[in-house]
């Protein structure tokens, strides 16, 4: 067993974290609430959430659809955040229509793809991952 934190997606505005702290860690930090460092990797910003001493999970309101998050679990001692575990990364769903109007098409042949570059609107993105995959 080791200290760990797992992150899950609930909806465009909320994620959920649960964690395990080994008893030695709990003993060392007795009386101090675990802190979550919630990092928005899309915006490159973060904030801290003070949980409570006995918590082992938290519903986190991140308020950011379509953004990628990672959470560090730790304690703040003497004003310094000490990381004990880092979560997996998750991305919240979008909650609105995309404003990207690019059009790429493929011919779907039950497993065999023949790629069509479709430039109806004269938009092209040579670096697009979709187009790159045709070289595979």
């Amino acid at each position: 067993m080791e200290n760990s934190i797992t992150l899950m997606v609930r909806d465009p505005f909320w994620v959920f974290a649960y964690w395990e702290l080994v008893s030695e860690t709990r003993k060392v930090f007795k009386g101090i609430p675990p802190v979550l460092k919630v990092k928005n990797l899309t915006e490159k910003s973060y904030c801290f959430i003070y949980t409570n001493e006995f918590a082992d999970n938290w519903h986190i309101e991140v308020e950011k659809p379509g953004s990628t998050f990672e959470v560090e679990l730790g304690y703040i001692v003497d004003g310094v955040f000490q990381t004990l575990a880092v979560s997996n990364k998750v991305t919240t769903p979008r909650n609105s229509v995309s404003n990207n109007f690019e059009e790429y098409y493929r011919i779907f042949r039950n497993d065999v793809f023949q790629v069509l570059k479709f430039l109806e609107k004269g938009i092209t993105s040579p670096g697009s991952e979709y187009l790159k995959s045709e070289d595979d």
Binding site: R94, N95, S96, S98, N99, N100, F101, E102, E103
Partner: peptide
């Protein structure tokens, strides 16, 4: 509907 790019 919320796919990206927007489905035509």
């Amino acid at each position: 509907l919320f796919a990206d790019p927007k489905p035509k």
